[in-house]
């Protein structure tokens, strides 16, 4: 039911798109029709390129997302659980967070060259901050009553973390991860737009230079679909985790 309701608007847009292009209300060089975009996809599939572009982009997003999230969780634990960690690290991290994503690109390319490392690092930076911010705040705001009750029953250090603090922040960890995944796709395009020879961002950039509006639209649609798909997978995991931990 909700799925059907959610499909209404995209179908209307698709119909409108077909109508304005078929009637040549908008010239084809500005907005090619849906079928032209499908043809562009078919052409790329035939040449065996589309799967490769998608695969490399997905790989970059997942690697960057995992690396950024793991580091984000670790740093969040330090900042959220220890006053000293908070005082030492938080101002620096807040400043780094204020740096726009694109500002990192020249530095990363100089340091790590135009290989996979620079792109994955940029995506990891993008994924790090949402996880870090949400989880650190959640750890800092755990009900002190519960922690005290845990101490009463002899829980200390790791056992306290495992038994009380970690379960208490599971919902925040999950929502932080979802934000991080969205951010990872955002940073992927930033990374691939500037320096790449493969990937969906590369298609965008390359097609802009060749005037292939159909391929630009194809890349945008693919980014929307892939982003929704990975988000939906995390959403399912979230549902399961929240039933257990919230």
């Amino acid at each position: 039911m909700r799925l059907a309701a959610g499909a209404v608007l995209p179908l209307i847009i698709l119909a409108a798109w077909q109508i304005v292009t078929a009637t040549e209300l908008v010239p084809a060089y500005r907005l090619p029709g849906p079928l032209t975009v499908l043809q562009a996809a078919a052409e790329l599939i035939e040449r065996g390129e589309l799967g490769l572009h998608i695969a490399i982009s997905v790989q970059r997003v997942l690697l960057g997302f995992v690396i950024g999230s793991v580091i984000g969780l670790a740093v969040a634990a330090i900042v959220g659980l220890s006053r000293a960690g908070d005082a030492l690290l938080n101002p620096t991290l807040a400043a780094l967070r204020a740096v726009p994503s694109l500002a990192w690109v020249p530095l990363l390319i100089l340091w790590l060259q135009i290989g996979e490392e620079s792109k994955i690092t940029l995506i990891a930076i993008g994924a790090f901050f949402p996880v870090f911010t949400t989880v650190a705040a959640a750890l800092r705001h755990i009900d002190p009553h519960l922690v005290e009750a845990g101490r009463c029953f002899g829980l200390r250090g790791w056992s306290l973390f495992r038994t009380i603090q970690l379960p208490a922040v599971v919902p925040s960890v999950v929502s932080g991860l979802r934000l991080a995944l969205a951010q990872a796709w955002l940073f992927l395009v930033a990374a691939e737009l500037i320096a790449s020879s493969m990937g969906l961002g590369f298609i965008l950039n390359d097609s802009q230079q060749n005037g292939r509006v159909d391929r630009i639209l194809l890349a945008i649609v693919l980014l929307a679909l892939l982003g929704s798909l990975t988000n939906a997978v995390l959403g399912l995991a979230e549902k399961k985790l929240l039933r257990r931990w919230a």
Partner: peptide, 28 residues
């Protein structure tokens, strides 16, 4: 410090919301 021979019950139950009552009691 806290002593294994003492136990406390507070004004609020302070149960862990993600555990069943059984598992909460087991914490003690």
């Amino acid at each position: 410090g806290t002593d294994p021979r003492t136990a406390v019950a507070f004004q609020e139950p302070r149960l862990l919301p993600w555990r069943t009552l059984e598992k909460n009691v087991a914490l003690g």
